[in-house]
């Protein structure tokens, strides 16, 4: 019939001549074909497994999502659940979406800003709760579904959404680690948090001038009030490499007779004079940030604690990020 867009007999499109149709098929590149030959991800076994699990999965989802208009729960909505409020904005509830999105962004910023502190933990907890609330809110909009089923679906989706969080936390821990100071050690105070890169020295060795986190060899010394043991992780600057001769005299630090380019973080705590010959494969890190419970470190203790071997250096410190008002880039 005139005006029809398809053939009444076979259904073929009658608009072909007038419409713009691409007639060049998609092509696979040589690399793609090679890849498919070597790694046949989609082969008959893949489809056999898919067919095996398809029906049970469909049955389960049909049971839980009975009554849900699946057009509303499209893949576009599910993907957008990854950011709280995004799915609501996508579904046209912009105001509601913003109510979730903006607090979530603020909490995310605060938790990153104070990373490693208790405050960051609180922020992160609130952040996850807010995310859960946004998902529950989304499902609460699906009318006609029993409350129990709605809850189960919420938990299932929440479990899916929590995957990126777990991934981010586990992966970021490999890149950036956190240390919190438990005692005052000028210029750091109890409660300060520093971030450091544990993998900074995987490919190259530590450099003179780097502020690093290191663990000293346990050192015992007898004081007036008893026996002191210096053992722990400290943060300070490398002042000299192995084989150097380091001298601190008249408030001047020299390395191999030349004035040192880099001073330790709290040079005022050094004894009046000291001298260190750094063995090979070791670094000189002067112990000016080690807390001293009794008397100040004497010359002998300072010299002994200044030598740190390569394996004792745990990573390169980036920043003191907590508390925010004491923010300090250390490298």
């Amino acid at each position: 019939m005139p005006g029809s867009i398809a053939c009444g007999r076979c259904g073929a499109s009658l608009r072909l001549a007038a419409t713009t149709i691409g007639i060049h098929p998609p092509r696979a590149g040589a690399l793609t074909k090679q890849w498919r030959r070597w790694v046949p991800l989609r082969n008959r076994y893949f489809y056999a497994v898919r067919d095996l699990f398809r029906k049970p999965l469909l049955d389960v989802s049909a049971f839980f999502l009975r009554g849900v208009d699946l057009r509303e729960l499209s893949s576009a909505v599910i993907v957008r659940m990854i950011v709280p409020g995004w799915a609501q904005i996508y579904r046209g509830q912009a105001r509601r979406g913003q109510l979730f999105l903006f607090p979530w962004l603020v909490l995310l910023f605060l938790s990153v800003l104070c990373l490693g502190s208790t405050a960051s933990g609180w922020c992160f907890g609130f952040l996850i709760s807010l995310h859960a609330m946004s998902i529950v809110d989304l499902f609460a909009r699906f009318e006609g579904v029993e409350r129990g089923r709605r809850l189960v679906v919420c938990f299932l989706v929440l479990a899916l959404v929590s995957m990126p969080y777990i991934l981010v936390v586990t992966q970021s821990a490999r890149v950036i680690s956190v240390r919190q100071f438990l005692a005052d050690a000028e210029p750091f105070s109890s409660g300060d948090v520093v971030l450091y890169r544990p993998r900074a020295y995987l490919n190259s060795g530590p450099q003179i001038g780097d502020v690093v986190i290191y663990r000293n060899r346990p050192y015992r010394t007898g004081g007036v009030n008893g026996l002191y043991v210096y053992d722990g992780e400290w943060v300070n600057r490398i002042v000299a490499a192995g084989g150097s001769h380091v001298v601190w005299k008249n408030s001047q630090l020299t390395v191999d007779g030349q004035p040192a380019e880099h001073l330790p973080l709290n040079a005022s705590r050094l004894p009046a004079a000291m001298e260190v010959l750094v063995p090979a494969d070791c670094f000189c890190i002067l112990p000016t940030t080690i807390p001293n419970p009794g008397a100040p470190l004497d010359k002998q203790s300072s010299e002994a604690l200044s030598i740190v071997d390569r394996t004792s250096i745990l990573g390169k410190v980036i920043v003191r990020n907590y508390p925010p008002h004491r923010w300090w880039w250390l490298n």
Partner: peptide, 18 residues
Amino acid sequence: EEAPEADVWGRKALELFP
């Protein structure tokens, strides 16, 4: 040996000639 592309293209052709 470009069967996945043929599948995509076949789907398109069948939209035109169901």
